[in-house]
């Protein structure tokens, strides 16, 4: 591959992500959508590790990684510095982190960034697990998922907690634009990133990203599984402006599937199909999906143009 070809991409080829990585697909889509006039911060995590092994870098935009929990704070410093130096027209500031770096360890920093109203686009690559450290449970891990710190056994069906409703928490801060999207639909990511960048103030985009080894899916199955998550109602896709849901991705009647269609594709839920009593748990997960469909109005009504 020529230097020109490599440099023509904002996030170039040659990084070291796993084959079929949902986060890599999402990040590349984000980078292309955002373009060159950006400065990016990145929390510690897979995206940072697989794109910037010293002395090489896959990024063709100004990019900084500091620590695990401070992508939002570092981005705040960049945004304020650009204004103070009279360079605010130079670039939009984008902060990137995984679900752990956003919903758990970076939560305070994110809250501060939102509350202060910085003009920053924050992206959470939601793999629903601490992928980089070997698939431990995070605050965005769904109910009953097997992770290395929420193992299944005599006393447990995996993760005991519900997935934290982070978009609602962000929206409650008064962020003008909050959206969820999925690596299963790169065009949806592209549209939402471009839209988010038109807002002034903090915006938040949470992208559901299949993690091939973390979820236990085949490397060619990520996109399909990501779409099933949406079509069963477990991962609602919506946009909020000023705290109100303004648009959702409807589930077409032909596409709608029960949650077991989604769950059975992944080893992290295999125990639900293997042991007696699993069907009760699947029912509970179905109830979560049904509640999402109800809450966001995902079924019926006119089809979305997405």
């Amino acid at each position: 591959m020529s230097v020109e070809q490599v440099e023509s991409r904002v996030l170039s080829y040659g990084h070291t992500a796993c084959a079929g990585c949902g986060e890599a697909l999402a990040a590349r889509t984000v980078a292309e959508a955002a373009g060159r006039d950006v400065i990016m911060t990145n929390a510690t995590g897979c995206l940072e590790v697989f794109t910037t092994r010293y002395p090489r870098s896959s990024w063709n935009v100004p990019w900084i990684h500091s620590l695990f929990e401070n992508a939002a704070s570092v981005a705040s410093g960049i945004e304020v510095a650009l204004k103070a130096l009279g360079r605010e027209g130079e670039a939009k500031v984008i902060a990137q982190a995984g679900d752990g770096g956003t919903a758990d360890i970076g939560m305070g920093a994110l809250s501060g960034m939102l509350e202060r109203g910085h003009d920053i686009l924050y992206i959470c690559y939601d793999t629903e697990v601490y992928s980089n450290t070997g698939f431990q449970r995070s605050g965005l891990t769904p109910t009953d998922a097997l992770t290395t710190t929420s193992p299944t056994g005599k006393l447990s069906w995996g993760n005991l907690t519900r997935k934290k409703d982070l978009p609602a928490i962000v929206a409650a801060h008064g962020a003008p634009y909050v959206a969820t999207t999925s690596a299963g639909y790169p065009l949806d990511i592209d549209r939402k990133i471009k839209k988010a960048l038109t807002f002034t103030g903090p915006s938040y985009v949470q992208i559901h990203c299949p993690c091939v080894p973390g979820w236990g899916v085949e490397s060619n199955m990520g996109v399909k599984v990501a779409r099933l998550a949406i079509n069963c109602g477990l991962y609602p896709i919506f946009e909020m402006e000023d705290g109100r849901v303004v648009r959702v991705r409807k589930i077409k009647d032909d596409d709608r599937v029960p949650v077991d269609e989604y769950l059975k594709q992944q080893k992290r839920f295999a125990h639900l199909f293997k042991y007696p009593g699993g069907e009760e748990h699947i029912k509970e997960i179905q109830a979560i999906a049904d509640a999402n469909i109800e809450k966001y109005g995902l079924a019926r009504g006119p089809l979305s143009v997405d």
Binding site: T41, I64, S66, L67, N70, S73, V74, A75, S76, G77, I78, V80, A81, A84, A109
Partner: peptide, 8 residues
Amino acid sequence: SVVLGASA
């Protein structure tokens, strides 16, 4: 972290 980002 903010002064880190600003300095950078």
